[in-house]
Amino acid sequence: MARIDWFQAGMSDGRLGIEPSYFSVYEQLCARRSKTPDREAYFAAYREGVRSYCNPKNIYQIARTGAVAIGACEDSAVIRKAVQDGFANLLEQ
Protein backbone atom coordinates (compact mmCIF):
# COMPACT_ATOMS: atom_id res chain seq x y z
CA MET A 1 0.00 0.00 0.00
CA ALA A 2 1.32 3.43 -0.90
CA ARG A 3 2.09 5.84 1.89
CA ILE A 4 0.19 9.09 1.87
CA ASP A 5 2.15 12.31 2.01
CA TRP A 6 -0.06 14.16 4.47
CA PHE A 7 1.82 17.42 3.95
CA GLN A 8 1.05 17.32 0.22
CA ALA A 9 -2.55 16.27 0.86
CA GLY A 10 -3.02 19.23 3.19
CA MET A 11 -1.39 21.64 0.75
CA SER A 12 -3.58 20.41 -2.09
CA ASP A 13 -6.80 20.58 -0.07
CA GLY A 14 -5.94 24.07 1.15
CA ARG A 15 -5.18 25.34 -2.34
CA LEU A 16 -8.53 23.96 -3.51
CA GLY A 17 -10.41 25.67 -0.67
CA ILE A 18 -11.63 22.41 0.84
CA GLU A 19 -13.03 23.01 4.29
CA PRO A 20 -10.84 21.82 7.18
CA SER A 21 -13.62 19.58 8.50
CA TYR A 22 -12.97 17.30 5.50
CA PHE A 23 -10.01 15.90 7.43
CA SER A 24 -12.53 13.77 9.34
CA VAL A 25 -13.15 11.83 6.11
CA TYR A 26 -9.44 10.93 6.00
CA GLU A 27 -9.64 9.85 9.63
CA GLN A 28 -12.59 7.58 8.89
CA LEU A 29 -10.97 6.06 5.81
CA CYS A 30 -7.69 5.46 7.61
CA ALA A 31 -9.44 3.92 10.61
CA ARG A 32 -10.87 1.24 8.31
CA ARG A 33 -7.28 0.12 7.70
CA SER A 34 -6.10 0.66 11.28
CA LYS A 35 -4.07 3.69 10.20
CA THR A 36 -3.93 7.24 11.51
CA PRO A 37 -3.48 10.29 9.27
CA ASP A 38 -0.75 12.74 10.23
CA ARG A 39 -2.90 15.62 11.49
CA GLU A 40 0.07 17.86 12.29
CA ALA A 41 1.66 17.58 8.82
CA TYR A 42 -1.70 17.92 7.09
CA PHE A 43 -2.77 21.08 8.88
CA ALA A 44 0.67 22.72 8.73
CA ALA A 45 0.45 22.49 4.94
CA TYR A 46 -3.30 23.13 4.82
CA ARG A 47 -2.91 26.51 6.51
CA GLU A 48 -0.31 27.50 3.92
CA GLY A 49 -2.40 26.27 0.98
CA VAL A 50 -5.63 27.87 2.14
CA ARG A 51 -3.90 31.26 2.40
CA SER A 52 -3.30 31.18 -1.35
CA TYR A 53 -6.87 30.05 -2.02
CA CYS A 54 -8.42 32.67 0.25
CA ASN A 55 -6.47 35.51 -1.32
CA PRO A 56 -9.12 38.07 -2.39
CA LYS A 57 -7.70 38.21 -5.94
CA ASN A 58 -8.02 34.43 -6.25
CA ILE A 59 -11.54 34.43 -4.80
CA TYR A 60 -12.52 37.17 -7.28
CA GLN A 61 -11.15 35.15 -10.22
CA ILE A 62 -12.95 32.00 -9.12
CA ALA A 63 -16.21 33.90 -8.55
CA ARG A 64 -15.95 35.18 -12.13
CA THR A 65 -16.38 31.56 -13.25
CA GLY A 66 -19.69 31.38 -11.38
CA ALA A 67 -18.62 28.84 -8.78
CA VAL A 68 -16.75 29.73 -5.63
CA ALA A 69 -16.70 28.18 -2.18
CA ILE A 70 -15.49 30.29 0.72
CA GLY A 71 -16.20 27.97 3.64
CA ALA A 72 -12.47 27.41 4.15
CA CYS A 73 -11.80 31.16 4.33
CA GLU A 74 -12.15 33.41 7.34
CA ASP A 75 -15.39 35.31 7.12
CA SER A 76 -14.38 38.85 6.25
CA ALA A 77 -15.74 41.84 4.38
CA VAL A 78 -12.80 41.62 1.96
CA ILE A 79 -13.62 38.03 0.98
CA ARG A 80 -17.35 38.74 0.67
CA LYS A 81 -16.58 41.78 -1.55
CA ALA A 82 -14.29 39.68 -3.76
CA VAL A 83 -17.14 37.19 -4.24
CA GLN A 84 -19.67 39.94 -4.97
CA ASP A 85 -17.36 41.71 -7.41
CA GLY A 86 -16.51 38.46 -9.18
CA PHE A 87 -20.16 37.47 -9.56
CA ALA A 88 -21.05 41.01 -10.69
CA ASN A 89 -18.33 40.83 -13.34
CA LEU A 90 -19.69 37.47 -14.49
CA LEU A 91 -23.19 38.90 -14.86
CA GLU A 92 -21.90 41.85 -16.91
CA GLN A 93 -20.27 39.62 -19.51
Score class of each variant (00 low, 15 high):
41 A>H: 04
37 P>A: 05
48 E>V: 07
37 P>R: 00
1 M>Q: 11
53 Y>T: 01
66 G>Y: 11
75 D>R: 13
86 G>D: 09
43 F>D: 05
39 R>G: 09
19 E>M: 01
36 T>E: 14
14 G>M: 08
22 Y>A: 13
35 K>H: 03
26 Y>F: 15
23 F>C: 02
8 Q>T: 07
65 T>A: 05
31 A>T: 13
28 Q>A: 12
23 F>S: 00
19 E>T: 07
46 Y>H: 08
65 T>M: 07
61 Q>G: 04
17 G>T: 10
76 S>A: 04
15 R>D: 04
50 V>E: 05
42 Y>E: 00
46 Y>E: 13
6 W>F: 05
82 A>N: 01
80 R>T: 07
84 Q>T: 09
26 Y>T: 03
69 A>T: 07
57 K>H: 14
3 R>D: 15
84 Q>R: 14
30 C>N: 12
67 A>T: 13
71 G>K: 05
24 S>R: 15
89 N>Y: 14
21 S>T: 09
77 A>D: 08
86 G>K: 04
92 E>N: 14
52 S>V: 12
93 Q>I: 05
87 F>N: 08
5 D>H: 06
20 P>W: 11
53 Y>Q: 10
22 Y>H: 13
72 A>K: 06
26 Y>G: 07
52 S>I: 04
78 V>N: 05
6 W>T: 06
16 L>C: 01
90 L>G: 04
78 V>A: 13
63 A>K: 07
21 S>A: 08
54 C>G: 01
7 F>Q: 14
72 A>W: 01
64 R>E: 13
69 A>H: 01
7 F>I: 11
17 G>V: 09
92 E>Y: 10
70 I>A: 04
84 Q>H: 10
56 P>D: 02
49 G>L: 06
44 A>L: 10
56 P>C: 09
1 M>V: 08
2 A>G: 13
90 L>T: 01
70 I>N: 09
44 A>T: 09
1 M>L: 12
86 G>I: 06
67 A>D: 13
45 A>R: 07
48 E>T: 08
41 A>D: 05
12 S>G: 00
87 F>E: 06
11 M>F: 10
36 T>K: 12
58 N>E: 12
7 F>D: 14
58 N>K: 09
26 Y>C: 10
47 R>S: 12
4 I>M: 15
92 E>M: 15
60 Y>T: 01
75 D>F: 02
45 A>E: 05
12 S>F: 00
79 I>D: 08
30 C>H: 09
43 F>Y: 10
58 N>L: 06
30 C>M: 12
25 V>A: 15
40 E>M: 02
56 P>A: 02
21 S>L: 05
22 Y>C: 10
26 Y>H: 15
30 C>R: 07
36 T>P: 04
36 T>G: 11
60 Y>E: 12
91 L>V: 06
3 R>V: 14
5 D>L: 08
75 D>G: 08
32 R>H: 12
49 G>M: 01
43 F>E: 07
89 N>Q: 13
83 V>D: 06
30 C>G: 13
90 L>H: 01
45 A>H: 04
15 R>L: 10
35 K>F: 09
51 R>W: 02
37 P>G: 00
48 E>M: 13
50 V>W: 10
9 A>H: 12
93 Q>C: 06
74 E>K: 02
33 R>Y: 13
26 Y>A: 14
59 I>W: 13
91 L>K: 12
19 E>I: 04
8 Q>W: 07
65 T>Q: 03
83 V>K: 05
